[in-house]
Amino acid sequence: MIALLVQAEFRKLFSRSSARLGLVLSVVIGVLAPALLRSVGGGLEVNGENLQSMLPYHGAGGVAWALELRNLHILQAVLLVLAASSLAGELNARTLREDLVRPVRRDAVLLAKWLSLVLWDAASLGLTLVASAASGAALLGVDGDWMVPLPGYAASLAADAGLLALALLASIVLQSVPAVVGGGLLLTVLDRFVGLGVWGLAMASENLGLEETPAFLKMAAQIWPWTPYAAFGVWKGYRPAEPAPFQGIEGAWVWEGFVVLAIFTVVGLLGAKAKLDRTDVP
C-alpha cells in the first residue's frame, strides 16, 4: 500500500511546475558551477600566486562546486516550497481531505509524502551530479579524483531528508505555505550565522594557542558539532584537506551532525504524525 501511495505522491509532485522548475534548476547549477570555477580561475593572482593553483581546477572540482552552489540555500528553498505545498498547501486547497476520506492511515499519507519528496531530492542531486560531471569534464578536463565529492552528494541527501521532515512538521503546525517557506528560509540563514559564529569560536579555541583556553571557547568547541548548522552541513565532510581554500575548514565528517539529522528526521516525522492525527481536516 505504501509503495502505491509513494508512487502516486511522486507522480503528483513531479507534475507540479515548481518541482519541474526545481529539476531544471538542478541541471542549470550542474552546468554553471564548473563554468564558474573556470571563470574564477582564469589568470587571477593572489599574493603573487595563481588562483588556479589554489582551486580544485579540474572536472571533479566542478562536481564539488556544483554541490557547494546547490546547497547555498538555493535547493533548500525549493525543498521548503515543495514540502509546504504538499501538506499545508493541500490542507488549505482541501485536496488532502479527498485523500483522507479513503481507508488510509494518516501516518501512511505523511510517510508517502516525505518519501516522495526525498525521491525528488535524490533525482535533483543526481541531475546536478550528472550535469556537473559532463560540464566539468568538458570545461575543466577529466583530472581530479572523481570519487571525492560523491559522499558529499549522499550526505546532502541525508541533510535534505532531515530538512524535509522538519518542513512537513512546520507545514502541519503552521498550515500556511508562505509561513513555512519564509520562516524556514529565515531560520536556515540565521542558523548559518549562528553556526558560523559558534564554529569560529570553536576554531579559535583550537588555534589561538592560549595558555589556558577560556571556558566559553571550550564550550563552543563542544557544542558546535551538535548544532543544526553542523547537521545541515554534514555534506561538507567530503571536502579534501587540499587544496585551499577549504583546508582546515570543516574538512572532516562530523558524525554528531548525522546523529542530529537522524533526530531531526524522527522528531519531524513523528511530530507531524502526532499533529496530523489531531488535526481537523476542513
Partner: peptide
Amino acid sequence: VETPSFHAWMSGRDNLRQAAAYASLS
C-alpha cells in the same frame, strides 16, 4: 464533502488516478 477539490493543473483522469491509488487500485 462540500465542493469537491482537485489538483487543478492535472487532468480529470490523472486526478482519478491519484484517487485510485488511495483506493488501493493500481
